[in-house]
Write a protein that binds this DNA or RNA. Structure first.
Length: 473
DNA sequence: ATGTAC
């Protein structure tokens, strides 16, 4: 594979073989995956063979190996030109994403009550594999309301505050969700997990604004130095996972009927404009709404904990983004506006200033792009910029460098816990395994990823958040 | 990511 350095922040994989478009990777040389340990660059090239793909198979600076598509991958297909949709281009955790809430509180005032707050969050945030949830759904009919209405339904049922929905991508619910497209097994798994964190890299973190890089946008976003924030990273749990599994099987069986061949079975796909394609998108949208409701519920759980311990710590929602989703969007391709199916897997939509989908109070400044780092290193808030490449997309996190298996061999849970406490970061509820799998050493350098993202013109850096306490599964 | 495997 020929990898050409176009700029210090942009690399090109020349089309060869069945590739229909080049691969384009936004990264510095240091951030590129190690070909000996990580097949992600080959995956970028493989995605470039998908029917209907336009412009390029893109990857963000946090890219790494994933199921079929790389994590950090962005690929758009032309719906009217036989373009396909692929569940692997969304990922198993459909609409996994991040929500950032802002407390009306300076970190110095929180410190004396931090332990109490963390204890309150510890008991009010269900987490871990297949454990409990905040919201016990009354019936399968109510699950259908969640699948159709997402965070909007949660707020209608009292789990939210006015203004929450306006600060959610898609106003809290993806359109065209069809609960009937979701299988019975996924439904069963979904009944008991609305309002639960899960495990792996999912977390709830208490953070504070540490540095401001863009004064004007930070002011508009409400990010003043020292301000306490809550970052929630979770997705659609077992339900989304089951939807992905079911769809991959369906599409693997259907592909020959559509005359599609792909270099990797994990790239199973079907035309967007086909029964299988439409059914997947309808099920994916429903699972996405489940994920949106999930983050809404956990945001409420955080609010209740703040109310109990702080009293006046009221949390306002800055924004809620998804970083695992396929969306039908219209973009200029060459000299024509085209209807595209844009897959973002471990990549965040980053709408530019002035975009009509942004809420009025944020519209002039561009969409908040929330970039959680690994445990203990904090997070960034970026903003969408005009004319960004890759269909208005940006990075979604630090990006894994070591596999979970490799990560656990680098440090003990006791050592990691001590390191975090030494840095003044309170840890609650993390299993030893969960902790060591997520050691910061297993991830790329978040500062470098965000810098590359900004230098590549994907987004603007607004502020950095530093962690104070972490709740993990 | 995930009741960590068909």
């Amino acid at each position: 594979m020929e990898l050409v350095e176009e700029t210090p922040y942009r690399w090109r994989i020349e089309p060869e073989g069945a590739m229909r478009v080049p691969g384009v990777v936004f990264a510095t040389r240091e951030l590129l995956p190690d070909p000996a340990a990580d097949q992600a660059l080959g995956q970028v090239a493989a995605v470039a063979t998908l029917p209907g793909i336009v412009e390029a198979s893109y990857a963000m600076p946090d890219m790494h190996w994933g199921y079929g598509f790389p994590i950090g991958g962005v690929a758009a297909t032309d719906v009217e030109d036989g373009g396909v949709v692929s569940p692997g281009g969304v990922g198993f955790d459909i609409s996994c994403g991040v929500r950032l809430l802002l407390a009306d509180l300076h970190v110095d005032r929180l410190r004396p009550r931090l332990a109490a707050l963390m204890d309150a969050l510890d008991v009010s945030v269900p987490r871990g594999m297949s454990k409990g949830a905040v919201w016990r759904l009354g019936s399968e009919a109510e699950l259908e309301e969640v699948l159709a209405g997402g965070a909007r339904y949660a707020v209608e049922r009292g789990h939210g505050e006015p203004g929450d929905l306006e600060h959610c991508e898609d106003r809290g619910a993806v359109a065209d969700a069809d609960p009937a497209a979701i299988g019975s097994r996924a439904r069963e798994r979904g009944l008991r997990q609305v309002g639960s964190l899960g495990s792996g890299n999912h977390f709830l973190e208490v953070e504070a604004v540490a540095e401001v890089y863009d004064e004007e946008i930070a002011r508009a976003y409400g990010l003043w130095p020292g301000r306490v924030c809550v970052l929630i990273h979770t997705g659609s749990r077992g339900l989304g996972h089951q939807v992905c599994t079911d769809s991959v099987h369906t599409m693997q069986a259907a592909m020959t009927r559509y005359g599609i061949s792909v270099p990797d079975r994990q790239l199973a796909c079907a035309p967007v404009d086909s029964h299988e394609g439409r059914t997947y998108l309808a099920a994916m949208a429903a699972a996405a709404n489940y994920g949106r409701a999930n983050r809404q519920l956990l945001g409420q759980a955080a609010r209740h904990a703040f109310d109990r311990v702080i009293g006046d710590g009221g949390l306002s929602l800055l924004y809620d983004v998804s970083h695992n989703l396929a969306k039908l969007e219209t973009h200029q391709v060459g000299d024509r506006a085209r209807r595209l199916c844009v897959h973002r897997k471990g990549a965040t939509l980053a709408l530019p200033p002035g975009h009509p989908d942004l809420p009025p109070d944020l519209r002039a400044f561009g969409q908040p792009v929330l970039v959680p780092g690994s445990m203990g290193v904090g997070s960034y808030v970026l903003a969408g910029v005009p004319g960004a490449p890759a269909f208005a997309s940006a990075c979604h996190g630090a990006g894994r460098r070591l596999s979970r298996h490799q990560a656990v061999k680098t440090i003990t849970a006791a050592r990691l816990r001590a390191d975090l406490e030494h840095e003044g970061i309170a840890v609650r509820g993390a299993s030893a395994r969960g902790l060591t799998e997520e050691t910061p050493g297993a991830y790329k350098d978040l500062d470098a990823v965000v810098a590359a993202c900004a230098r590549a013109g994907l987004a603007r850096t607004v502020a950095k958040l530093t962690p104070i306490g972490v709740v993990k599964g």
